[in-house]
């Protein structure tokens, strides 16, 4: 077989030079290159935006801009690209909100260098992946964790999980929705599910 489904290889993008990415390529690129930067991006946004309740929306805006820009032209170096976009968004927001911008602007300039550091996130190797996901699972709220474990590890269907947990299939679904949402936050933002709930 020429094609491989080896999950370790899904990280590679191989395009003929100059070609724009197709939509599926762009999606894969985003998951592979941008999502691993989320923890540092959130840190950056949290440090530079006083209202922490807005940071998640901010992240969304950054992602949309990153995706749109990459659609026009895929960046050579992803980390500086993402942080440049985050920085511009912060600056624009500061300008629009007309709150005293001085410290923030200074801070932004100082932080700009951080964008050029090689990403520690990328050094995570496959060997650690299972351990990381497993510890993320352990950090889920109890019922969520139970439903996700039965689903992902034991491979049970919603109906079977419902019987096992003594709840309705709809409640199983709700636990899974909550579980996956937390998993995404833990795996990418490195925020704790319990903290966020509080």
């Amino acid at each position: 077989m020429t094609q491989t489904t080896d999950t370790n290889r899904e990280g590679e993008t191989l395009r003929l030079p100059g070609a724009a990415m197709t939509e599926p390529e762009l999606d894969a690129w985003f998951v592979r290159e941008v999502l691993p930067l989320e923890a540092s991006l959130m840190q950056y946004l949290n440090r530079n935006w006083r209202d922490s309740s807005e940071v998640e929306d901010f992240r969304q805006d950054v992602y949309v801009k990153v995706y749109e820009a990459a659609r026009r032209e895929p960046p050579k170096s992803v980390r500086p690209f993402v942080f440049a976009i985050a920085r511009n968004l912060l600056i624009n927001k500061v300008k629009r909100s007309q709150i005293v911008p001085i410290e923030t602007a200074v801070d932004l300039d100082a932080l700009n260098i951080a964008a050029d550091e090689p990403g520690a996130e990328r050094s995570i190797i496959a060997r650690d992946e299972l351990r990381i996901v497993q510890s993320a699972l352990e950090r889920l709220p109890k019922r969520c964790r139970e439903a996700v474990t039965l689903r992902k590890i034991d491979g049970l269907s919603t109906r079977e999980i419902a019987v096992r947990m003594g709840i309705s299939p709809r409640t199983v679904d709700a636990h899974l929705v909550e579980g996956y949402t937390h998993l995404a936050d833990i795996l990418y933002s490195h925020t704790d599910a319990m903290e966020k709930k509080a």
Partner: peptide, 22 residues
């Protein structure tokens, strides 16, 4: 909305990572 798709990609990627535990 692009934000919808990105949110979907993100949670799907997390869920797929959990699949590997199986």
């Amino acid at each position: 909305a692009l934000a919808h798709k990105i949110a979907y990609l993100r949670v799907e990627a997390a869920s797929k990572r959990a699949d590997r535990l199986g």
